[in-house]
């Protein structure tokens, strides 16, 4: 399969490809591969990396030996006394929250992105509309945190400087502390994530939609199909490959996402996610062993999606 994509007429020295690859390989092994190996090694050590993780076991408690940091990473937030207790603690843990992020944020960004792409295709101000939805991509997370402070702010006085609470109180409601009420606050943070990333999904999906041949849609219209049916039965199946790519890309993004949580709540009030927990363990609790173990768990969680992405890509390659 590999041979076909190269013109058979080309002549090349044996070293030529490697010369082209050299700079990329160098920087990547230095900045990505080496730290990764180092991280994996550290995840089996104690908090300063001076001795094996097995030495941190507490007597009389279950111990996983050299995997003690993984024991901590996987179980510290869980209450294993009973099954219901386990579930309720799971949904408050960084793992449960990350799962919420994946489900809500990926469906939110892809759903809204697709909807907007379809609708914007029919109006004259399409370019402007799309640019506006895309705009938050140009904002840093620090900036986004400040922007959303003036949306979510919670005032104890009559005066509300947060937009949402001002709307709520003007209808006679009680102000809501969006960032501190457990469960609600995770949703509030996810909304910020959706605000930032919808433009990304929308742009890609919109281009895929434009590639759907007009004749197919016209033919369906002539046959009397409703717009809704056309969308679900014709457009969606055609752009399905793109949708899967966008979904997997977003899942990877969400898993690595740390900034929004770090900037807006610092993982407090039950909003912690895996990536933020890794940062907390490393730089706030100074436990290198545990921090790296969380990091490795995170990497392992991402690998299936990367694998899926690459396999799809290779399959496409074969069809080329």
């Amino acid at each position: 399969m590999a041979k076909r994509s190269v013109p058979n007429i080309m002549k090349q020295g044996r070293l030529a490809p490697w010369l082209y690859l050299l700079p990329a390989l160098l920087v990547m092994s230095f900045f990505i591969v080496y730290p990764m190996v180092n991280t994996i090694a550290l995840s089996f050590s104690n908090k300063n990396g001076t001795a094996s993780a097995a030495t941190t076991c507490v007597e009389g408690k279950p111990c996983w030996g050299i995997f003690e940091n993984y024991h901590y990473a996987l179980t510290a937030e869980m209450d294993t006394s009973s099954l219901p207790a386990f579930w309720s603690s799971f949904w408050r843990s960084s793992y449960g929250n990350t799962l919420k992020w994946i489900v809500l944020m990926v469906s939110g960004t892809v759903g809204l992105g697709l909807m907007f792409a379809v609708l914007a295709d029919r109006v004259k101000y399409e370019a402007l509309a799309k640019s506006i939805i895309f705009m938050p991509m140009a904002v840093s997370f620090v900036g986004a945190g400040i922007i959303w402070k003036f949306v979510y702010d919670y005032g104890t006085q009559q005066v509300q400087i947060g937009l949402l609470n001002s709307i709520i109180t003007s209808f006679g409601g009680k102000p809501i502390a969006f960032l501190t009420v457990p469960q609600l606050n995770t949703v509030a943070l996810i909304v910020v994530g959706v605000w930032i990333w919808t433009g990304f999904c929308m742009t890609i999906l919109s281009a895929a939609l434009k590639a759907v041949p007009d004749e197919v849609i016209e033919a369906a219209r002539v046959d009397g199909a409703k717009e809704w049916t056309i969308f679900w039965k014709i457009m969606v199946p055609i752009i399905m490959p793109t949708i899967t790519v966008v979904i997997t890309t977003m899942v990877i993004n969400v898993l690595k996402l740390f900034d929004i949580v770090y900037v807006m709540t610092g993982g407090n009030f039950g909003t912690d996610v895996i990536a933020n927990r890794m940062y907390t363990e490393m730089y706030i609790n100074f436990n290198v062993g545990r921090g790296t173990a969380v990091a490795v768990v995170l990497v392992i969680a991402i690998i299936p999606f990367i694998y899926f992405n690459i396999r799809r890509f290779l399959a496409q390659e074969e069809m080329r």
Binding site: A24, M28, M36, A275, A295, I303, I306, I310
Partner: peptide, 12 residues
């Protein structure tokens, strides 16, 4: 190379 996207920046 593409799979190396998995590596989170914070741990490096």
């Amino acid at each position: 190379l593409v799979g190396l996207q998995v590596v989170p920046l914070q741990m490096t």
